[in-house]
Simulated assay, not measured.
Amino acid sequence: MTGLMQRLWRQKKVTIGLAIVLAFVLIAVFAPLIAPYDPSARVGRPHEAPSAEHLLGTTRVGRDVLSQLVWGARTSLLVGFAGGIVITVIGTAVGLIGGYRGGRLDEVLDLATNVVLVIPNLPLLIMLAAFLGNAGIGAIVTIVALTSWPWGARVTRAQTLALRHREFVLAARLVGEPTWRIVGVEILPNLASIIGINLVGSIIYAVVAQVTLEYLGFGDPLGVSWGRMLYNAQNASAITVGAWWDIMTPCAAIALLGLGLALINFTLDEVANPQLRSGPALTRWLRLVDRRRRERKPA
């Protein structure tokens, strides 16, 4: 685990990604201090362009876009992190139990994983959200978690199947170690990078799923989130009337958060799979090209 953390901190991408994500987390935590206005209050003229008074302009009903962006970060990040954690916990538990125990239990869990895996996620999300009506944060987290855990379960199960026959696991069985200790102490630490990749990927998916559901009108109509901002901007025909800031602001926030999480995910993937590291190979290739260019120059 210590070696994994040391390799992570040597990567520049993870530093940039963590800085971006941490910035959004701080914005969400200190939203009452950062937001200049009440996000639900009418504080300006409809579709007022960005100015010194309203840095990111106003919406069709005169609400401050910056305040909505700051407060919306709370909802979107809460759904993203809560959904990502629940997805990872379910997927890891199913993969570990099935991969280690094997037999009939593994067959049942594998069948359940395959059944959920083949069902298209987005139509299922829309159907469940429509059934629940105006879904709140808890409902969206539950819907996302119940439909998105199989990907992590498949990867965790495959790795567990490979580890259960390793020498250190067999030795722990021979000395009579209990199952919970073998799984928790011998196998689980070796899955740290896989679980980290699943967690970050699940957070990205949960944020996108929440934004998608609210953009389609299945979220809380009284809530403030990036998806609700997009829904309101689309209903107000923001692009048609020239109020680009109304729709570009939440889009930019979603893209930037996704970039930060993706950089972290890429780094975890490179640490777990050294063959994916392109930095040293690219450097060697550039040096080779530069050397050949110098050799071709006339004396």
Rank of each mutant, 00 (worst) to 15 (best):
L8S: 08
K13Q: 11
I16L: 15
I20M: 05
A23Q: 01
F24M: 13
V25M: 11
F30S: 07
L33I: 10
Y37G: 04
P39W: 00
V43I: 11
H47M: 15
H47C: 09
G57A: 13
R60T: 11
D64T: 06
Q68E: 15
V70S: 12
W71K: 06
G72A: 11
S76D: 10
V79T: 01
G83R: 01
V86I: 15
T88H: 01
G95S: 06
L96K: 03
Y100T: 04
L109F: 07
V116Y: 10
V118A: 15
I119S: 02
N121F: 14
L125K: 06
I140Y: 01
I143D: 05
W151V: 08
V155A: 10
L163M: 13
R164H: 09
L170V: 06
A171W: 04
G176W: 06
W180V: 05
R181M: 07
I187T: 05
P189E: 13
S193A: 15
L199Y: 03
I203L: 02
I204K: 12
A206V: 01
A206C: 09
V207F: 06
L216P: 02
G217W: 05
G219K: 01
L222M: 13
V224D: 06
S237V: 10
I239W: 11
A243P: 10
A243H: 04
W245F: 04
T249F: 09
A253H: 05
I254Q: 03
A255N: 03
L257N: 01
L257G: 12
L261D: 04
A262F: 08
T267P: 02
D269M: 04
E270C: 02
Q275M: 10
L276S: 04
L282I: 14
R284F: 09
R287T: 09
R287D: 13
P298H: 04
A299Q: 12
